[in-house]
């Protein structure tokens, strides 16, 4: 039995009274910590050597684009998430290079972050 905020779907009223109640978690949601971590993708991204990066991205210019990824609007640590994701997209072949070769990559944001598009392989 776990205690959860009573009104966890609504704004917390902050009065500290009757804010928790107990309920049984349905069996289909009972997962071990490792399984939860796996489902959430909860992990650090592996450190890659320059050769590994080159192997995954296929060209020196894409590696240079990856290395140029930065962040101005988010905490500096998010930069490593961005780089890690770019490499993982390539490693797991999550999107076919042909999809990016033949179709548009649209970046919607508040910065001038052209590096992602190039590191990901967006040609258009």
């Amino acid at each position: 039995m776990e205690k959860y905020p009573k009104n966890f779907n609504s704004p917390y009223d902050g009065n500290g009274e009757d804010d928790e109640y107990e309920f049984v978690i349905p069996s289909q949601f009972k997962m071990g910590k490792e399984e939860i971590k796996r489902k959430l993708g909860f992990r650090d991204f592996p450190k890659r050597t320059i050769e590994e990066k080159r192997g995954l991205l296929g060209s020196e210019e894409r590696v240079r684009a990856l290395d140029a990824i930065t962040t101005t609007t988010l905490p500096a640590s998010k930069k490593e998430i961005k780089k890690g994701v770019v490499l993982e997209v390539a490693e797991q072949n999550l999107i076919s290079p042909e999809v990016l070769r033949n179709n548009l990559l649209v970046y919607i944001g508040s910065g001038t972050d052209i590096e992602y598009a190039l590191a990901l392989g967006g040609e258009k």
Binding site: L74, V99, N103, L104, V106, Y107, I108, G122
Partner: peptide
């Protein structure tokens, strides 16, 4: 761009997009 506001001055998504990247996309 907004999925709610349309018309003049607003960006219309093109067809056949391979990838949409959203970062710090507050507007």
């Amino acid at each position: 761009y907004s999925d709610k506001n349309k018309g003049e001055g607003w960006y219309e998504l093109p067809d056949k997009i391979g990838m949409v990247v959203l970062y710090a996309s507050q507007g």
